[in-house]
């Protein structure tokens, strides 16, 4: 096949053109699409959102700075530092459970199947176990309960909930049925967490026929934890945030 000069030149130059084009494609450019009104709006929304976030952070920064300033100022006058420490003490005590609390919440009364007729073949199906109480407790915690007590025993971070034959052990003492669980928190959420269809509480009541009576209560009293936390092995490490 005879190739004339012109065709050869065109071949060579189109090879060069191909190299240019493919190198261009490789560099993954953003396309030069004109800005549409929609994309402009989306961009503006994004910008507004980010700006508000920045402002929030700035406010928080200012707040913290003022807090720091007030703490620094406190060190010179004794009476205000006592006030400040008292406030800290109350909040720490509330968190640890050493302070009695009151507020709106729900009361749950749980007891063994009161009917003469038993449900399953096993009598164990008709009594409350530690796991039943524990599951209700977890449901309440998930629903945002701020303070919980069982039969007058405050549930704290070190509380155990352990089967002891016919009774349940909590905070080192034994409690028997009926178990009365008090929880302070959002009443609707707490109620939904134990009473809505499909929850553990609902199954206890309607399937296992175990006594389960949740009630909304506007003024609940939850006693303080009477025991003491003692750390023999654990040591504080570093300085945590808050």
């Amino acid at each position: 096949m005879q190739i004339d000069k012109g065709k050869f030149l065109i071949l060579v130059s189109s090879i060069g053109l191909g190299i240019l084009i493919s190198t261009m494609m490789k560099s993954n450019l953003e396309s030069y699409v004109p800005v549409t009104l929609l994309s402009l709006e989306v961009m503006q929304e994004d910008l507004k959102f980010i700006n508000s976030e920045v402002n929030e952070l700035k406010d928080e920064f200012k707040e913290k700075e003022e807090e720091l300033k007030s703490i620094k100022g406190l060190s010179y006058s004794d009476s205000t530092i006592v006030d400040k420490l008292n406030i800290d003490l109350v909040s720490s005590k509330s968190i640890s459970g050493h302070m009695a609390l009151e507020g709106p919440g729900i009361i749950i009364k749980m007891y063994d199947n009161p009917e003469d007729e038993i449900i399953g073949q096993d009598v164990n199906d008709d009594v409350i176990h530690d796991v039943d109480v524990l599951n209700i407790l977890n449901d309440l915690r998930v629903a945002g309960a701020e303070a919980i007590s069982i039969n007058g025993e405050r549930v704290v971070s070190s509380s155990e909930l352990k089967c002891r034959g016919p009774v349940i052990g909590i905070n080192g003492i034994s409690i028997g049925t009926p178990f009365i669980i008090r929880a302070i928190g959002d009443q609707k959420l707490l109620m939904a967490a134990v009473n809505a269809p499909g929850t553990y509480g609902d199954a206890l009541k309607n399937i296992f026929a175990i006594g389960f009576e949740p009630e909304v209560e506007d003024d609940l009293f939850i006693p303080a934890y009477s025991g003491n936390f003692s750390f023999k092995y654990a040591k504080p490490k570093g300085e945590g945030d808050k």
């Binding site: 071949l11 053109l17 191909g18």
Partner: peptide
């Protein structure tokens, strides 16, 4: 010729490490 050339060039361009 041009089509072949562009294809060959494109292959070369993709193989070359330059951008």
């Amino acid at each position: 010729f041009a089509l072949i050339g562009i294809l060959v060039g494109a292959v070369i361009g993709f193989l070359l490490p330059y951008t």
